[in-house]
């Protein structure tokens, strides 16, 4: 069954992809091996997993300002997520998404986005409208 999740209008283009979800926070600097395209921070719940072409669903952004440059670099090398969804973005990730042309949304009306979407769900992210649509649940396949 299709699930429609309203959020604040976000940044970047409409994209479609498979979700990768954790209740953890996110920093491109702290958490990623950007050359391998994987989460590298040992304590992160997504450690060892590839984020390439996935719709990342995480709690909030943490740490430093480097992510703003890094999202574009990751995008140009073809080793980037398609979109990032947060409960609450910080300024850096919003700026980085704008610079990279990456889809990013936050502030969902129905609550904790890391609980509303599950890893493997197929979703459409529409930042200009402020809408994320879950087309197909991984659990229902």
């Amino acid at each position: 069954m299709t699930l429609r999740l309203r959020c604040h209008p976000g940044i970047g283009p409409r994209v479609e992809g498979e979700a990768l979800v954790a209740e953890d926070d996110f920093s491109a600097r702290y958490d990623l091996d950007r050359l391998a395209g994987t989460f590298s921070r040992p304590g992160h719940k997504l450690a060892g997993l590839s984020y390439v072409d996935r719709v990342l669903v995480l709690n909030t952004a943490k740490g430093g300002v480097a992510s703003a440059w890094m999202l574009r670099e990751m995008t140009e090398r073809g080793l980037a997520p398609k979109a990032i969804l947060f409960n609450a973005a910080n300024t850096i990730l919003a700026q980085g998404a704008a610079f990279a042309g990456m889809a990013l949304c936050d502030r969902f009306e129905d609550g904790d986005i890391t609980r509303l979407i599950a890893t493997g769900d197929h979703v459409i992210v529409d930042p200009p409208v402020g809408l994320v649509t879950v087309l197909e649940r991984a659990a229902e396949r």
Binding site: A66, A68, R72, Q95
Partner: peptide
């Protein structure tokens, strides 16, 4: 100030 990433700064 907000946190300003490189492009925004």
């Amino acid at each position: 100030s907000n946190f300003e990433g490189g492009p925004s700064a």
